[in-house]
């Protein structure tokens, strides 16, 4: 993209501008406050409407929720706004309408950093590790907001993903795709979040690695940590889902338990290939 008032006119000059690493998010500004909003699900993004910057709305009154101890998945066709919905819950884009509530508090006005402090852990789909830093430094950065001793949590992460302990002094960018995904999830777990949000954790990994990752995610969910997940592999995702949302063009199309949606004819026809 080189458009807009402050575009680069296609300039690729390495001697003046660093490529890569630049943020895309237009997060909620810092300084907002939460207020009590008791009742309702553990985490809910309700009737969310908004888009990036001054662009057109991508979400239209979209609602996503997850309860304690549940796995909730968001599925839908390409460009349905699945990732956007998740980013909206995390405060990575400004909502024009709607609200986000976590554990009895309205956090719509909080910046992403503040939401991390409130207990949200988020693993983006791509660029989800610090490639130039070691595995251990990645985990340390995950624990950035913690002032207490986080060595215990790190040990837990290493227990969950033993390969990471082996490679903890290696630059994360040198790891294989599946290992990088493990670093990414491990980084998010370091905050000891109250809810874990995963954006297509299995994108671009082999089927075997995918199965293993799903197993780990179920393992995490069994510890009582609610998991909200966007998935491209709709069938497998629905199989492990306690609750599922099908989004189409930024709107809720179908909602139900994983089993219900798997059984739903219309869902099968449009998204699961019959």
């Amino acid at each position: 993209m080189s458009g807009g008032d402050y575009g680069d006119r296609g300039n690729r000059d390495l001697s003046i501008a660093k490529p890569g690493g630049m943020g895309e998010a237009r997060p909620v500004r810092e300084g907002g406050h939460e207020h009590a909003a008791p009742g309702g699900p553990f985490l809910i993004g309700e009737a969310m409407t908004g888009g990036y910057g001054r662009g057109a709305d991508i979400l239209h009154s979209c609602t996503i929720a997850v309860e304690r101890g549940e796995i909730a998945v968001i599925v839908g066709p390409n460009g349905a706004g699945k990732s956007t919905a998740m980013k909206a819950v995390f405060g990575m884009l400004n909502l024009r309408e709607g609200s986000v509530r976590l554990d009895g508090e309205d956090i719509t006005e909080l910046s992403p950093q503040a939401r991390v402090r409130k207990g949200m852990g988020f693993v983006p789909q791509t660029h989800n590790i610090f490639t130039s830093m070691t595995v251990e430094e990645n985990l340390e950065m995950g624990a950035f907001i913690r002032d207490d001793d986080f060595r215990g949590t790190m040990a837990q992460v290493y227990d969950l993903f033993p390969i990471l302990k082996e490679k903890r002094r290696q630059a994360a960018g040198e790891l294989s795709g599946g290992q990088r995904q493990q670093v990414a999830v491990g980084r998010a777990l370091m905050t000891q979040p109250k809810v874990l949000m995963l954006d297509e954790p299995t994108a671009g990994v082999s089927p075997i690695v995918m199965d293993e990752l799903f197993d780990r995610i179920i393992e995490v969910a069994r510890t009582g940590l609610p998991v909200l997940m966007v998935e491209q592999n709709a069938r497998q995702a629905l199989e492990i889902a306690d609750k599922a949302y099908v989004l189409v063009q930024g709107r809720n199309a179908h909602t139900g338990t994983g089993k219900e949606l798997l059984a739903d004819d219309e869902v099968r026809r449009s998204f699961l290939g019959g």
Partner: peptide, 23 residues
Amino acid sequence: RTGKSMRAYSDNEDLALLSGINP
């Protein structure tokens, strides 16, 4: 910690944001 957070921000701005690092 601050120094590492600077390296993290340099590496990946959005992820730094997600880790609670204040840009």
